[in-house]
Amino acid sequence: MSSVLHPVGPERRGVYWRRRLLAVLVLLAVVLLAVLGVRALTSERAAGEPAAQQIDPSQVASTLTAQPTGSPTGSPTGSPTATATTSAAVAPCEGAALSVLLTSDATTYGPGRTPKFALTVQNVSPVTCSVEVGSGMRTFVATDASGAQVWSSEDCQSSTSSQVYEVEPQSSRSMTTTWSRQRSAAGCPDGQEMVPDGTYTVTGTWNGVAAAPVTVSFSG
């Protein structure tokens, strides 16, 4: 211990003290550099790591509330009233909103040929409306030159079905029938005769509204 405080040697005491002071300074410099290096390394690690995210409980609750709810299979579920609200009923066509037209596929029919008639209901109004069409809504009647009824589509009609259709402006729906050129009577009795050759007037009505008649001729 005495040699540390009282250096002994051939040199003067001041030389030994300067050497010891230099050694202490070098040691302090090494320690300081080591401390600075550790601090720098710690700072770099801290800068590279993301800061811990603060979670707002209110945001979590909002996110959970916004999640959609569906069926267990993931299929979307619609509103039970959606179809009803998008398919509102269309008002029936009335009065001057309709035009009823009767046509035939020919005017003269030779041997074995049978006429086909079409009764067409057209919407002549500027708005869409509904029309009920079908065998239960139309009637075709044929009369001979004397005005006597010889055939009616109602006499042997096997079906009286009908259906309501939405008809846009200038659009139409047609109902057709074929006449076998055989007489008919109420109740559709068997054994009715064929009408003779000649000219016949055919009329057509839809829901009681008559169309202009057409004339057909049979020969052979």
Rank of each mutant, 00 (worst) to 15 (best):
A82H: 06
T83A: 15
A84V: 11
A84S: 10
A84T: 06
T85I: 11
T85C: 08
T86A: 11
S87M: 09
S87N: 07
S87Q: 14
A89P: 15
A89M: 12
V90R: 13
A91W: 06
P92W: 01
P92F: 02
C93Y: 04
C93T: 01
C93G: 02
E94M: 14
E94C: 11
E94V: 07
G95T: 01
S99C: 04
V100P: 01
V100Q: 00
L101V: 08
L102N: 04
L102R: 02
T103R: 11
T103W: 06
T103H: 12
T103V: 11
S104C: 09
T107F: 15
T108S: 15
Y109E: 13
Y109K: 09
G110W: 04
G110C: 10
P111F: 05
G112C: 11
G112S: 08
G112H: 09
G112Q: 08
R113A: 11
R113E: 13
T114M: 11
P115M: 05
P115L: 03
P115Q: 10
F117W: 03
A118I: 14
A118K: 09
L119A: 05
L119C: 07
T120F: 07
T120W: 07
V121C: 12
Q122F: 11
Q122K: 10
N123W: 10
V124T: 12
V124Q: 02
S125M: 04
T128R: 05
S130Y: 01
V131M: 00
V131A: 01
V131P: 02
E132R: 13
G134F: 06
G134V: 02
G136P: 05
M137Q: 10
M137P: 15
T139K: 07
F140N: 01
F140T: 00
F140E: 01
V141D: 03
V141C: 01
V141N: 09
